[in-house]
Design a protein around this nucleic acid. Structure first.
Lengths: 120, 120
DNA sequence: CAGTATCCACAAGGATACTG
DNA sequence: CAGTATCCTTGTGGATACTG
């Protein structure tokens, strides 16, 4: 389980006017290990099922991916759609808010691509 | 956007040629709690001493800030300069590589600023 | 297929006190 | 001033097994 916001809360007074609060705010959404990658995949593929996502990410277990998706859903970034069929099917896609992360994830990707040679 | 993604070489075996590797790469640098904020401050102030940084960040202890700075130094993002004076003084600034993170941190900040009202 | 349920491990953050 | 040194707690992640 997880609460909406953990240790540092952007609404808290201690960071009210600080301009780096925006950075912290975004990191609460993208700070969890698989979150940025999940958003990245969904930006490209529009909609993916649980299994497809797991396969693309490669090294993630059901439990961890499930937690990551639940977290993103709670934060209004990802939308979960259950299709009533015999074998249950679930589609994951980005909400409007999720799609608004495109410039952020794009920047993360660009910088990373430019520095893969270095070390990472 | 680059949906095609030139799928550059990824050094880590576990993420071989996956195009989301760039995202992961960047997150290794900015994933640690205070790292993005430290970089953000240094982008604005150019150079800060340990105490100044601690004061600006507010809720960080000496130990944690120290670890964060060491991590950033190891990753070639931050540069540490010791000035030989009576009370030891140390200046922290960004390397060229660190300054190249400006678009990334800028994107993090912009998104966060636009969503502070929501929840974070 | 799309998850839960358990149990475990460990990095990292935090509190507090001390020092060259 | 700019850290270390300790010790403690917790959040995540991971492995494995099971299910509607």
């Amino acid at each position: 389980m997880n609460t909406a916001s953990s240790a540092s809360d952007c609404v808290a007074s201690w960071c009210a006017d600080d301009d780096w609060c925006g950075v912290t705010c975004t990191m609460e959404v993208l700070g969890r290990k698989w979150n940025p990658v999940v958003v990245h995949r969904l930006l490209e593929r529009d909609s993916l099922r649980f299994g497809e996502l797991a396969e693309e990410l490669g090294d993630v277990t059901n439990k961890v991916l499930s937690e990551s998706l639940e977290d993103l859903e709670d934060r209004g970034v990802v939308e979960r759609t259950v299709e009533n069929e015999k074998p249950v099917r679930v589609r994951y896609s980005l909400t409007e808010r999720g799609r608004s992360l495109e410039p952020v994830v794009g920047a993360l990707e660009d910088w990373g691509e430019d520095h893969l040679a270095d070390d990472c």
